[in-house]
């Protein structure tokens, strides 16, 4: 007989594991991946494969030769970073820019902090923002979606995103109502994917499908997305009520840009979001307000990435300030 084992309790463990969670997130992103391939063709596939392979490769090389730890590239986290990075860039991005993005994401934002679980900022977002600032031209020339077997909305090969159109129009002194006709049927198109934009921005429905799966698997909780979307609606709603000619309605903010992607897939990133549900609510609300602030008053048309990254930086403080409800803290009834 083997030696008896001695350990502290508990002696049973759930089947849940880090790998399980990570691959769950990957499964949740499959619908959005398929939709993006449908709209952008093989270009989308090229970007995604390149990005995932680059992320895996960078992580492998760093773990093997630089940090000299166990190689854990198959735990799924690098694949997620790769897909999210691909979701955040246009489909016609040159391969070397994607590689740079992967190096920044995995190398700078993740491995240099100590690997999975130690990074302060969401790696994919750091990569994306780095690319956006370093290669603004390539990163903002959005190919117009051209469904396989269908026709594109316009003859142009590339075009601005709805948010870009809005920002430029408002900057030129036009009112919202004057700009609106330039963005045909935005709600319908945005939900099913006819807008110009990065891979993951095109179809809100596919993203929400994946989010429902993650909620069902309890990979994410409702707190962060709820607070995020709620604060976006409230804050942009207030602005809209104040002056409907200068500020767009809340629905526009909800469905445009990387809002759905950011809210469900990046703000909920376990590693870089707060631990307590109270903290998650604060985190989501803060990110929502920052997003609208950047979109409406900032220089960039899109603010989700920056907002989430800024709030990532506040996570240690939020964790310190917003403790979970302790037992015995609630009033005696």
């Amino acid at each position: 007989m083997n030696l008896l084992k001695v350990s502290g309790s508990p002696h049973v463990h759930t089947d849940n594991s880090v790998k399980n969670i990570m691959y769950g997130v990957i499964y949740a992103m499959i619908p959005a991946m398929l939709v993006s391939v449908y709209f952008f063709g093989l270009d989308a596939l090229r970007v995604m494969v390149l990005s995932v392979v680059a992320c895996l490769l960078v992580e492998y090389l760093l773990q093997k030769y630089v940090v000299k730890t166990d190689v854990t590239i198959w735990d799924g986290s690098a694949i997620i970073t790769g897909i999210l990075l691909a979701f955040n860039v246009p489909s016609n991005l040159p391969w070397w820019i994607i590689l740079i993005g992967a190096i920044v994401s995995i190398g700078v934002a993740k491995t240099s902090f100590g690997g999975l679980g130690k990074n302060i900022f969401n790696p994919a977002l750091v990569g994306r923002v780095f690319l956006l600032i370093s290669f603004p031209v390539q990163m903002t020339s959005w190919p117009v979606p051209k469904p396989i077997g269908g026709t594109a909305l316009t003859d142009a090969v590339t075009g601005p995103t709805p948010l870009g159109i809005m920002k430029e129009g408002l900057a030129a002194g036009q009112s919202v109502q004057e700009i609106m006709p330039e963005i045909p049927n935005y709600v319908q198109n945005l939900m099913t994917g006819f807008q110009g934009g990065s891979l993951g921005e095109v179809s809100a429905i596919a993203l929400i499908l994946g989010a429902i799966y993650m909620l069902y698997r309890k990979i994410i909780t409702w707190h962060t997305p709820f607070a995020y979307l709620g604060s976006v609606v409230i804050f942009s709603g207030i602005l809209w009520l104040v002056d409907p000619t200068q500020f767009v309605d809340p629905l526009f903010h909800l469905v445009t840009g990387g809002m759905i992607l950011g809210v469900f897939y990046m703000a909920t990133d376990m590693v870089s979001s707060p631990m307590s549900t109270r903290g998650q609510l604060v985190f989501g609300a803060g990110a929502g307000i920052l997003t609208i602030l950047i979109r409406v008053f900032g220089a960039y048309p899109e603010g989700v990435s920056f907002a989430i990254l800024i709030m990532n930086g506040f996570v240690p403080l939020i964790d310190r300030a917003f403790k979970p409800a302790r037992f015995g803290e609630m009033v005696k009834s």
Binding site: V18, G115, L116, M270, M275, T277
Partner: peptide, 19 residues
Amino acid sequence: VLHCIRCSKCVSVCPMGLE
């Protein structure tokens, strides 16, 4: 044993509301 990935599962299951 792996690194903590801050999934906050432990916080959500603690019956005493600890971290």
